[in-house]
């Protein structure tokens, strides 16, 4: 069975058309995700403009090491995902490399979630959850932490979905139930993964860097 026959799905008649449609579809979805996260970041921007001192004080309470390590982990996962995706588009013998890179990507995603778990634990212990007994005296600092929990929580949900999609590809690929070389599914999963990384790239300076210089 040729690559094209193995990868072709209904209703497409040609693999190239299927690939272009899949890519176009995921980019439209990613554009809608950009608007979704854009709205959250805009809410943050408006609140920060109105309450700069409270946001600086709240930002200082975040753990910059957890944030920086997690950013490095996600950036590295994007490297392994990019290599997996680009290797799969080649004609050579790439199955082992693609599987290894996808496995590393999923493992780095899990590592991010573990670090985030430790960070959440610390935040809860420091009473940084908005509501009764909130640690900071400025009332507007609760706005920062309301957005912090919301945005990082929604990002974690996206990442969990990404990990599930990558693990699915690893399992199906290892069992030889799908062909990873030239797979449009792999290409689409990679694009989703990178967007989750891009969202975090913007969250990093907004959550972890405010108030450090003052």
């Amino acid at each position: 069975m040729s690559d094209a026959t193995a990868l072709l799905r209904e209703p497409w008649q040609r693999l190239e058309r299927q690939r272009q449609a899949g890519k176009f579809g995921i980019w439209i979805f990613l554009a809608s995700e950009t608007l979704f996260f854009g709205a959250l970041l805009l809410t943050y921007a408006v609140c920060r403009i109105e309450h700069p001192d409270a946001f600086a004080a709240a930002g200082r309470e975040t753990n910059i090491w957890f944030g920086t390590i997690n950013t490095a982990i996600l950036l590295t996962s994007s490297l392994t995902m990019a290599v997996a995706s680009q290797a799969a588009a080649q004609k050579g013998r790439v199955r082992q490399l693609v599987l290894a890179c996808l496995g590393a990507t999923a493992a780095l995603g899990v590592a991010f979630m573990i670090v985030k778990g430790f960070e959440y634990k610390e935040d809860i212990e420091k009473h940084l959850v908005p509501g009764t007994g909130f640690a900071l005296s400025q009332p507007s600092a609760q706005l920062f932490y309301g957005l912090y929990w919301l945005v990082t929580g929604v990002h974690a949900i996206h990442l969990t979905i990404g990990i599930a999609l990558v693990v699915r590809l690893v399992l199906l690929g290892a069992a030889r139930r799908i062909r990873l070389r030239g797979s449009p599914e792999l290409e689409v999963t990679a694009l989703y993964w990178h967007l989750v990384d891009v969202v975090w790239i913007f969250l990093y300076p907004l959550i972890y860097l405010p108030g450090r210089a003052s």
């Binding site: 890519k23 176009f24 990613l30 554009a31 950009t34 608007l35 994007s78 990178h194 891009v198 790239i201």
Partner: peptide
Amino acid sequence: VLVFFMELIRSRALIRIAALAGLVFVGVM
């Protein structure tokens, strides 16, 4: 990430327009 890892540098114009559409509307917002 967008240009190299997501390969916009090698993508067709249609894909680039789809990517740009999200950024334009976020810009308007």
